[in-house]
Amino acid sequence: MNIFRFAGDMTHLISILVLLLKIYATKSCSGISLKTQELYALVFLTRYLDLFTDFISLYNTLMKLVFITSSLAIVWCMRGDPAVRRTYDKEIDTFRHYFLVLGCFVLALLLHEKFTVQEVLWAFSIYLEAVAIIPQLVLLQRSGNVDNLTGQYVLFLGAYRAFYILNWIYRYLTEARFTRWIACISGLVQTALYADFFYYYFISWKNNAKLKLPA
């Protein structure tokens, strides 16, 4: 474990806490893409298949449980809770995310570390996580105004994988045979997708203005 990876995991955890805060404190999920949340639930379910078979550390197991339960709780709440469900932007959260799932699955069948169920699904979860934010970014562009908690949620979510890139550079430099090309390249693509959001977030912060994404 290195400081970059720990910072990345904490930033990821904070993004989930900010989202839970927004939904439970405001009893609203306006501005949140249910499709992105469903993709994240799928990412964690397919990535942490080794939860019960390979024990790495208490920290690792705990974090996996937190990520799986929180992502399922958010999807369940956005679909099930009548008060929250009413605030869901159903008519603008229309990105066809099934194509993302299909594309990532085909790619995982072609590009993986080993052709086993666990490794193919792991590669699938890495590719899917890289593109899972697209429905959310599309929804924010369509909805125009972004409330503070939603903006912070997306900001922390984008920042976490940037810390992981620093972690991979650090491990590549300090560990003999550390190569994790699938995660590294996907992580670069994932972070690049946030580039324009980071830019508009910085501009709005500098001008102390409301965050607006151009349509």
Binding site: H12, I56, N60, M63, Y164, N167, R180
Partner: peptide
């Protein structure tokens, strides 16, 4: 970590 010790990250 799989048998080959990989995948220790979240």
């Amino acid at each position: 970590a799989r048998r080959d010790g990989s995948k220790d990250e979240l």
